[in-house]
Design a protein around this nucleic acid. Sequence first.
DNA 1: AGTGAGATGGCCT
DNA 2: GGCCATCTCACTA
Length: 195
Amino acid sequence: MNKVLPKEFYFNNTASVAKKLLGKILCYKATDGAILQGKIIETEAYLGIKDAAAHTFGGRKTARTKSMYLDGGHSYIYFIYGMYYCLNVVTKTHEHPEAVLIRALEPIQTEPLSLKKKDLKTNGPGKLCKYWGLTKEQDGLELWTKKSGLWILDNQDIKPKEIITRPRIGVDYAGEAAQWPLRFYIKNNSFVSKL
DNA sequence: AGTGAGATGGCCT
DNA sequence: GGCCATCTCACTA
């Protein structure tokens, strides 16, 4: 029996949480009542105030980023490029606005056919939100309880040898921080967003 | 395989 | 007004 990850899981340092989330099961009760599940394959850590690639760099606090200033274990979903949403998991306490971007999922086959028909995949942060129908509506939810409708189940731990570490994607503007090794994915998994 | 542009709109200064 | 934690398609070679 997989249990829901407790709130304390998210209070560790953000890069560790990003790695520990690999192999865990993200669950969402969709608006039509279906339960969607996917194994987390790829993540990126965003280190808040000191991280030029993070939305909260320098302590910026705006309407968009308010969820990052909640305690660890909340969702942070933002709208980007005029057409995509991206899902994050907030980490640490409200004094540390850090988060883990969920970049790829491996679908677990419990989806209704209506979703399978759509020619969409979950191997990218924008695509997985579109596939599951995640939007601003699901921003700020409590991931440590099923009652929120969006939660994460404990599952396997991925061995260090099976975790590939790389610089993050799409943050070239961030100077030195663009090189930080904060992207993690499961080795030899076909759902990784890019090599 | 690698590069580049377009879609498209909220966010930030 | 410019930028952006993306994605797809077209083009070059």
